[in-house]
């Protein structure tokens, strides 16, 4: 019960951080440099790992469904199954989890160290709200980059599935049939749902990481703790939100 209360208050405070950050929205045009810098860190540098891992997620998905479906002689439907799972669920979730691991941890570490070494205090005495300079550009950047990461994850996952479906001997599915399964039964709405999901996940991950980083108190040892907390809270948020967003988008 206490843990639940603790998590809820974390999410509540993260939400308040969001509200405080959004107040600085008018300053955004002046912060384009920082937004682009964060876009680079959030999107460009995360892209390779997202691409590689979603390829394997798609592959293993095709392998598993192929193995199960060959019993019924229904391997033709691998494309549909992989297509829908990647678009609706695995693409966005994988992209968000990798974002939490790669970017969320880095953000919480950076902000925690800024907090511990009083850089955040220095900003406050300079009348530069940390929300404006540290949080807002990251939130905007993730909004711009997350759909790109998610669509990359989805498409590369599809390709991974196609490679496995056509190359593994006991499946041996013609890629054309595989992609027919995708184009005929995956609606653009499915992909759009996935992108919306990814957007919400990514936003939550960055918001939580910023919040945890800025909440850090004490000495340098707390930086490590903050990183752990940020990643754990992000993963909880992703899986928790996943259910409800899925429900809402169905």
């Amino acid at each position: 019960m206490r843990i639940l209360h603790q998590y809820l208050s974390e999410f509540g405070q993260a939400f308040l951080l969001l509200v405080r950050s959004l107040r600085h929205l008018p300053s955004l045009p002046r912060q384009m440099g920082r937004v682009i810098e964060q876009c680079y860190l959030i999107g460009y540098t995360t892209f390779p790992i997202v691409a590689i891992l979603s390829f394997f997620i798609g592959s293993v998905l095709a392998l598993q469904t192929g193995y199960s479906l060959q019993t019924f002689g229904a391997v033709d439907f691998i494309g549909t199954i992989v297509g829908l799972s990647m678009a609706r669920e695995l693409g966005p979730v994988m992209a968000a989890i990798l974002l939490a691991g790669r970017v969320g941890s880095a953000i919480s570490a950076e902000l925690a160290s800024m907090k511990v070494y009083q850089e955040v205090d220095a900003l406050i005495t300079m009348n530069i709200p940390p929300e404006r300079m540290l949080v807002l550009p990251r939130l905007i950047a993730v909004l711009l980059m997350m759909p790109v990461l998610a669509i990359v994850a989805i498409i590369i996952g599809w390709l991974g599935g196609a490679v496995v479906a056509s190359q593994v001997s006991f499946i041996g599915l013609d890629p054309r049939i595989y992609f027919d399964g995708i184009t005929n039964f995956v609606a653009f709405k499915d992909v759009l749902d996935g992108l919306i999901k990814a957007q919400i996940f990514g936003f939550s991950v960055i918001l939580i990481s910023c919040h945890v980083g800025l909440q850090t108190r004490g000495g340098p040892r707390e930086i490590g703790n903050s990183v752990t907390r940020a990643v754990v809270l992000s993963l909880i948020a992703i899986l928790f939100l996943d259910y409800f967003i899925t429900q809402a988008l169905l």
């Binding site: 876009c39 999107g43 990359v152 498409i155």
Partner: peptide, 13 residues
């Protein structure tokens, strides 16, 4: 790079 990356995303979508 960011601009290219973003455009690539839009094109893919």
């Amino acid at each position: 790079r960011v601009g290219f990356f973003f455009l690539m995303g839009l094109v893919l979508i």
